[in-house]
Amino acid sequence: MTATTAAPPTERGASLAGVLQRQGAAVVLVLGVLASWFAFPHFGSADNLRSLVLQGSFLAVIALGMTFVIISGGIDLSVGSVYALGGVLGAYGSRYGLIVAILLPLVVCGLIGLINGLLIARTRMAPFIVTLASLLFARGLLLALTSEGSTTYKVEAGSAFLWLGQGTIFGVGVPVYLALILFGLGGVLLRRTRFGQSVFAIGGSEQSALLMGLPVVRTKITLYTLSGTLAGLAGVLTAAYLQSGVTVLGVGTELDAISVVVIGGTLLTGGAGTIIGTLVGVLLKTLIQNVINQVGTLDSNYQTVVSGAFLLVVVVIQRLLARSRRS
């Protein structure tokens, strides 16, 4: 057996090397930030950096839930609609106080996630088709709540709710802190709990997970509920930031979330991935967006072209690596 390779000196060293190996995106991110710093005079300004991380924080919250779902081998296409619904519900609820403004969207979006999870785990329907249906459903619910999108609920000026989106601590937006805290918790949940281990096992081999007696059904239901709730939370934050529940929000956001997760090194086939990778993916995407804005002369639509191309490159590389590993 060739198993006794030179083990890296420390636990931390091992995980760092592993992260670097898996995180090609991190390298690209660092290089990208450095290059932008020199290329664009405005890029390094505090204002720009602040807005960059704030922009990224909303997507980050959605992508966090998506990371769990994708590691489990599933997919959640409903997050874009649920995100928008969360925003509308948050803005609507803000007139009844802070608690309602936060809880109403979280509960409703969590319920949609729960239904996704129940349908996927219990009836074994394909996740993509179930969440596709709930994408439509959530969008329909949103339209029904806003008289077919014609009503935009405003958050009253001075409401404590606004602080969630617009407040700053040490000059950095509250959503950024929230996203970081959630990522920290997410990391612990994924790496340090039995739930997280089950998520990896289900994504790696559902058959094995079942044979090992892991709570497959319960884990899946929890995952999709988590994803729905986080998408709702992102909506709440966005509503607080924009002072209103924007009805046209979130079209295609599920694709953004999926791409950043995959760019961050999580396997779309499930079974492997990291929370930190997703964070890198989010930042990279926000950076691309920012750079395209900085260039000014570039059509802002290049953003999605670059995202799509990047996603493709990552997937192809993942695939080729997997192939070479097998042979």
Binding site: A133, L136, R139, G140, A144
Partner: peptide, 12 residues
């Protein structure tokens, strides 16, 4: 909105 929700139900 109702049309979309019905469509969702039909898919499922």
């Amino acid at each position: 909105s109702a049309a979309q929700m019905v469509q969702a139900a039909i898919i499922v």
